[in-house]
Amino acid sequence: MTLAEGERHGSMSLATSTQPRTVALPVEFFAGLRQSALAAHGGATVLPVDAIRDAGYAAGTALYGHFATWLSEQGESHPDKLSDERFPWLLEAFFHGIGWGRVELHALSDAVMALDVSEWGEASDNAGGCLVSTGLFAGFFGRLASAPISVLEVDTGTAGPGRSRFLLGSVDVMGYVWEAMERGIPYDRAAASA
């Protein structure tokens, strides 16, 4: 399980540009990032998790701007003005179109959303979870909500190759879910009672 809290990143500044820029990286980037991070820490067996998630967070906040530009190019409304019916479909089309994979957003309760990913590059080698993606979603959805969002990765490695599930909610709600899970309560029950 990995947890990213949007609150940690409140002091990060975002570079603004009128023209969003992106680069394409092969999915092997994620394995290379893990190996390089371990080597940089003297061959330690524990990754510098916060640093990797922080990089994902910065990418996620910027990616939100790319999503807004993409929506405009599609003739759609700004992300914060999209209808609840169209948002999940457009979110999936955007992430799939830029090569990250497929995403499906589901409500687990009034306070917790589940984000299921498949064909997900970082999830193809689930050793240690999807650290970049956890930060990426915290940044992306935090900007969408205009509030800190915590992201908790669950079902790491059990959902199958290229698949994973993330839970999204406020910092307090996800803290409650995390604590309940540590006591052995399944995440879906914890989310339903949050």
Rank of each mutant, 00 (worst) to 15 (best):
F95H: 12
F141C: 02
M1V: 08
S146A: 13
V154P: 08
G60P: 08
Q19E: 14
A190G: 06
Q74P: 04
T69Q: 15
L3S: 05
G175A: 10
K81I: 00
G175N: 13
G169I: 01
V171L: 07
R21A: 12
S150G: 07
F137K: 01
M113W: 12
I185N: 14
G99T: 05
V132Q: 13
S193K: 04
R102D: 14
R163K: 11
V27G: 03
T45K: 12
L167K: 03
P148L: 06
V117Q: 14
D116R: 12
I149P: 12
Y57L: 09
E5M: 10
G99D: 14
D172F: 08
L136E: 14
T2F: 14
V49P: 11
V132E: 14
H9W: 14
E122N: 07
A127C: 07
S150M: 03
I52G: 12
G128T: 05
R102C: 04
A68N: 08
G65P: 04
L3M: 12
G101N: 11
Y176I: 01
V46G: 11
P79Y: 11
V23T: 11
E7M: 02
G169C: 05
G6K: 04
S118D: 15
V23D: 15
R189G: 01
L108N: 08
A68C: 06
R102S: 08
Q35C: 01
P20K: 04
M174G: 10
H9L: 02
R102P: 01
T156S: 13
H66V: 04
R165Y: 01
T69A: 15
T69Y: 14
R163V: 00
L3N: 04
P161F: 09
G101M: 09
A4F: 09
Y176C: 09
I149H: 13
A55Y: 12
A24V: 03
K81N: 06
G43N: 13
N126W: 13
E182R: 12
S146Y: 08
A123P: 08
E119H: 10
A40Q: 11
V112N: 14
T18C: 10
E153I: 01
G121E: 10
R189S: 07
L91S: 11
G32Q: 13
V173E: 15
G97S: 10
R165E: 02
G128Q: 10
D84Y: 02
F30Q: 01
F87Y: 10
V49S: 15
D50Q: 14
A40L: 10
V154F: 05
A44N: 11
